[in-house]
């Protein structure tokens, strides 16, 4: 599978990590850093609105659930050239990945679950990281790159 881009959003919708993979042969345009922030905030808002639209009766809250918590919110955006998937963790962290057309939802979810596990190792256990702030951890970036190449 080919991951084109990865976004990490904190629980209030701020962009804390953004990365495009192999940008030369990518097929996805680079935006200005301000546009990335706006994209992140917009997706976060739509996610919240969609979650608000869903009647709660249809989706009773499941207990002891780990993994993807994105039950009622915006889940997927499809375009002509790529798909965008949203994954939410128990603490409200959103992992958004833009993948090539034809990549199944399971594969993308597995990729984002792996990103989540790397995040909890290399960001949460780093004493130099302040919660909800942009991620500037070299080891995290290295691991994410390795993961995107492997999957």
């Amino acid at each position: 599978m080919k991951v084109l881009s990865l976004y990490l959003l904190n629980k209030s919708g701020g962009l804390i990590y953004q990365r495009d993979f192999n940008p030369e042969s990518n097929g996805i345009n680079k935006l200005s850093s301000n546009d990335y922030l706006i994209t992140a905030g917009t997706l976060h808002s739509i996610h919240a609105i969609v979650a608000g639209l869903t009647p709660p009766v249809l989706y009773p809250i499941q207990e002891n659930q780990t993994g993807n918590q994105n039950q009622t919110g915006l889940f997927q955006v499809e375009t002509e050239k790529f798909n965008l998937f949203i994954y939410q963790t128990l603490t409200g962290l959103k992992i958004i990945s833009i993948v090539q057309k034809g990549v199944s939802q399971e594969t993308a979810t597995r990729f984002m679950a792996n990103v989540h596990s790397i995040y909890s190792d290399y960001v949460m256990k780093n004493p130099f990281y302040t919660l909800d702030m942009p991620i500037k951890c070299q080891l995290f970036s290295n691991k994410v790159l390795l993961l995107s190449e492997a999957s």
Partner: peptide
Amino acid sequence: RYISVPSEFQNFNC
């Protein structure tokens, strides 16, 4: 293992 030292903390090792 899980610690990446930021550049402003050069030469520091946990």
